[in-house]
Design a protein around this nucleic acid. Sequence first.
DNA 1: CACAGCTTGGTAAACGATTACACCGCTCGG
DNA 2: CCGAGCGGTGTAATCGTTTACCAAGCTGTG
Lengths: 334, 334
Amino acid sequence: MAITIKDVAGRAGVSVATASRVLSGGRRVSPELADRVRESARELGYRHNAVARALRHGRTSSVGMIVPEIGNPFFPSLVEAVERTLSESGRDLLLCDAQQDPSVELRRARTLMARQVDGLIVIPVSASASRAALDEVASRLPVIQLDRFVTDYLGDWVGVDDALGISLAVEHIAALGSRSVAFVSAEPECSSAQQRLRGFTEATQRMGLLESGDRLLGEFSAGWGRAAAQKLLAGPSLPDAVVCGNDEIAVGLLGEFRRARVRVPDDVLVTGFDDIRFAALADPPLTTIRQPHEVIASECIRLLDARMDDADLPAQRIAIAPSLIARESTGSVS
Amino acid sequence: MAITIKDVAGRAGVSVATASRVLSGGRRVSPELADRVRESARELGYRHNAVARALRHGRTSSVGMIVPEIGNPFFPSLVEAVERTLSESGRDLLLCDAQQDPSVELRRARTLMARQVDGLIVIPVSASASRAALDEVASRLPVIQLDRFVTDYLGDWVGVDDALGISLAVEHIAALGSRSVAFVSAEPECSSAQQRLRGFTEATQRMGLLESGDRLLGEFSAGWGRAAAQKLLAGPSLPDAVVCGNDEIAVGLLGEFRRARVRVPDDVLVTGFDDIRFAALADPPLTTIRQPHEVIASECIRLLDARMDDADLPAQRIAIAPSLIARESTGSVS
DNA sequence: CACAGCTTGGTAAACGATTACACCGCTCGG
DNA sequence: CCGAGCGGTGTAATCGTTTACCAAGCTGTG
């Protein structure tokens, strides 16, 4: 068995209470005893047992996080930012992957609750089907929705202003002279998809642009971007610009356009969303909407802490403005 | 306060022992009492407390994992596979990011130990500087090194056979007629970089290829790929092929070649390593070495479990063969 | 000089679950 | 008819820590 505080106390010739006070800084302890305890702990290689401490305190100093699918290149950067922010206050992250499945998401939420995490950060898989998990958790724990939210669910949320982001993209291509524009995104299953769609509709109307072709809604993947490009190519004429719901779609689309010898940006402008690591490396480099991960993560933790402080705080929804990163896919920089 | 097993027992009119036996299946309990307990638990919305259970059992049913940098696109897929594999046996993953810094890595290892994880999976940041963390942990916990390993460290490891992978790439480009080949990779700071470098040296010698230009060693990033491409372009002549240490480097290199109007594969062949999500979407699609994540993850957990079973098992090093994925960057499929 | 008040240490009770052990009442075999 | 054995239940110890409470000793003041 590992060294416990009892062993440390024994070797130092003090009671466990004193040892505990020295090691986790409760009350004052006389210098000589404190030294003896520290020395003894060092000699024995004592390490505190966070499980026992958590049981006693009723807090684990850990936060759970459920992500729809960690393999999706946008989420790791958010996870990284959250993990870093938490570590600044000495807390750890328990990460779970929902495998894009609301029932897995619910199971994960339950095990995280069982592990007594102090709070939960959820990027919901679905705007509707994730409600069950959130409801169940929220009755017992502080929960913050990150990035995406559940429709009509009254809870805290922090994320990027998706509609604004898309409108930045639309304004950008309009300013470059585009008159007709297509939208390739995901079915409005999660809030991001919904808000981006709404943002697109509103912005195009506001700016008096022609919507060319149907809105092509599939999923947030390069494969869908490819398929959508084929649909566009099969149509009577290409739009002046294609606004994509995320970068993966845009990258897939660019690949298909390239294969079909459609030149970007000469023949058609293309924009993405998220500014994932590879957006700048695409061919051509992708104009996109950047999400400020660090800000989003730190607002998320701030909100979580506020909620932990006061469960009766009114729900907050914090939408953070993204920014447009102009690259060659919308302008001949070369 | 939350509902405890005491509340459940009280409401069902039985002792906590009986309630516990019903709820976590210890000894047999008479059907009527069992029903009463289950009913009472349901009515009260009882959820067990995994912290208390862990303290009692001395096991947490959780595994820690330390990753050099979750933002690096190769790691999330490994994390995903590990998480899924663990969840099959009802265990959770505590994920930590080492921020590419061995001292952060050590701190993370310590907090994971404090949390009493049942085992630890480490992708070491450095082949030398990560030793301290591993030594400290290994004396108390089962540890498996994943993907990378520490030099001369006697511990379990599971990963891909890096040298073999590179030799696959070299043989591939040799078979396509290349006579001169450059190697662009990272400084041999971690074992992957070391093994890939060794694999390159051995394979080129074995096949009698000319090594063109110096080996260009920087870091595993697209930025370095770009810089390396510029160095190659500045040289007297391009090699027939460039073998890259990973996909990010290759993608950066492709971008720079494109800008310089060097045609791939016509003027020069390029290969990557890892088969990250974006490899197939690069321009041209990247020939690369695929790592079988699922196999690696499941072998990793198998080894971890074996180690947990018997701490005295001799150390195992499991190198899994990768496979070559041929795409257009080494052949004019179009 | 006596006593209030402060400091410092120890004793023991939590935290929530599991489980060794004791006990009770039944059944069944001799 | 008695005792052994067994199935089912409760009591209480336990996991490692923190901390409320208590006691003892010391200081300083009226």
